[in-house]
Simulated assay, not measured.
Amino acid sequence: MNRISPKALLHSKWTKTTVVNKERHFVVTEIEFNEDKKIIRAVIQAVINHAEYEIDWRELKDGNLWLIGWQ
């Protein structure tokens, strides 16, 4: 399980463990918080083609799906 600080999530780098469409490396480009300082929206961008995807940021905690940094 990856440990994530919501405050440090913006601009963090991630590697997806399974490659889809040659997209493996990603950067978190947008984070939106509600009034309780909880994340309500997260957007990642593929490094290879700049495609953006809205994801549930909690998925990044799953070490079987995501690795911290570019590997």
Rank of each mutant, 00 (worst) to 15 (best):
D56H: 04
T29G: 03
W70F: 07
Q45T: 13
I44M: 11
I4K: 03
I48W: 06
A8N: 13
W14N: 06
H11V: 03
D62C: 07
Q45E: 15
Y53N: 14
V47R: 08
E32M: 09
D56I: 02
K61T: 14
E54W: 00
N2W: 10
W66V: 05
A8H: 12
R41H: 08
R41M: 05
H25Q: 14
K38V: 06
A51R: 06
N21G: 09
K22T: 11
E30G: 05
H50R: 15
H11E: 14
H25D: 11
V28M: 04
K38D: 13
V19D: 14
N2M: 04
F33T: 09
I48M: 13
I44N: 04
Q71A: 07
R41F: 05
V47G: 00
N64E: 10
I48N: 15
K61I: 04
G69P: 10
A46G: 08
K7G: 12
V19I: 09
F26R: 11
R58M: 04
A42K: 00
H11D: 14
N21R: 09
T29P: 02
I31K: 01
I55K: 03
P6A: 10
V19Q: 14
W66A: 01
D56P: 09
I4N: 01
N64I: 01
W14T: 11
S12R: 03
N64F: 05
E30H: 07
T17M: 15
R3W: 00
N21H: 02
I44W: 02
E30N: 12
R58T: 05
H25P: 07
W70M: 04
E52K: 14
V27H: 05
E52A: 05
F26W: 06
E54M: 01
N21S: 13
V43L: 11
H50T: 10
A46C: 15
A42E: 08
K7S: 11
I44Q: 08
K16I: 04
N64H: 05
D56Y: 04
I55V: 07
A46P: 12
L9Q: 13
I48A: 14
R3S: 09
N49E: 07
V19H: 06
Q45K: 10
W66M: 06
E30D: 12
V43T: 13
V28T: 05
A8L: 15
N34P: 04
G63F: 00
R41C: 06
S12Y: 02
T15W: 06
K16N: 07
H25L: 14
K38Q: 12
F33R: 13
F26V: 12
T18M: 01
E52I: 07
G69A: 06
N64M: 02
